[in-house]
């Protein structure tokens, strides 16, 4: 089988965006766990519009990268980093930045669904909001409905909002976690392999959801599943051994990769 030819004009393997189209920008980002460096000089412009997928073999620093964006990386003991990350042009690691406030603008969904087991479905959705303000009942109800609708879960749980979050199926739990993150009205939604613990039907649900959510949120999704990246994302970043190898429009990444290593990875030569 013949693959499309490489273009004769060498394109830069990592594309960049102008300031007004960039939501999250990293420059020269290095990260360590103890003595082990896991990110090497990563520079990337995550565009405001669309879904950005991050792919790469396990241990390549995908998760670490997104955790550097909402400053979750520093919660791990012995974790260090250097370099620059900015959100809307504002440095995330500036001395006067409160990571707590940052995380209210950058939501995160984790690999394994982790609804708070001691809270009802309703309280799970409201958990983030309740941290900042006291809600009156009607606003609370409104917020719950909005967030659950956005997460395409409202119709399934509208009659059981007082049941514990743990009573839902795995896929529903993950959508509850998405609703929980959306309720805080973040700008950016980071998703760290959100489907890897789910069955194919639940995965399809979440992928459908991404298509509507991307209209309103900047979405960064880490995935080890290349088909998924191809299905849901507009831009794809390929990480290898802690380095950003390629960042290009998804349509090109999987048909005409700009970097040799990317091609080898997507064709299954390693990984």
């Amino acid at each position: 089988m013949s693959r499309p030819r490489k273009p004769t004009i060498e394109l830069p393997p990592v594309v960049s965006f102008p300031d007004d189209q960039t939501k999250v920008r990293a420059r020269g980002l290095n990260a360590w766990f103890g003595d082990k460096q896991v990110l090497f000089d990563v520079s990337i412009d995550v565009p405001s519009q669309g879904v950005t997928a991050i792919i790469g073999p396990s241990g390549c620093g995908k998760s670490t990268f997104v955790r550097c964006v909402n400053r979750m990386h520093e919660l791990v003991e012995s974790a260090r980093l250097s370099g620059e990350v900015s959100l809307d042009g504002e440095s995330v690691y500036g001395a006067d930045v409160d990571p707590v406030l940052l995380r209210r603008r950058v939501g995160m969904v984790f690999q394994k669904p982790n609804p708070f087991p001691t809270m009802s479905i309703r309280d799970n959705v409201l958990a983030g909001l309740k941290l900042t303000k006291t809600l009156d009942k009607s606003t609370a109800e409104q917020n719950v409905e909005q967030a659950l609708s956005q997460a395409a879960l409202w119709n399934e749980v509208r009659d059981r909002l007082d049941e514990p979050g743990g009573s839902l199926s795995g896929g529903q739990q993950q959508r509850l976690c998405i609703a929980r993150a959306l309720a805080v009205q973040p700008d950016v939604l980071l998703m760290d392999e959100p489907c890897s613990a789910l069955d194919p039907i639940a995965t399809a649900h979440i992928e459908d959801l991404l298509h509507t959510l991307k209209e309103h949120y900047t979405i960064v999704i880490v995935t080890h599943n290349m088909q998924q990246a191809a299905r849901v994302s507009d831009m794809t970043a390929f990480f290898l051994s802690g380095e950003l190898i390629e960042f290009s429009p998804t349509s090109e990444t999987f048909t005409a990769p700009r970097h040799q290593r990317t091609e080898e990875y997507i064709t299954g030569k390693f990984g």
Binding site: N70, F110, V184
Partner: peptide, 18 residues
């Protein structure tokens, strides 16, 4: 208490005490 729950709370913008 699993660490994932703490992380979920932090990711929502909770302070340590919250």
């Amino acid at each position: 208490v699993p660490n994932t729950l703490r992380e979920a709370a932090f990711a929502l913008g909770a302070t340590r005490w919250q």
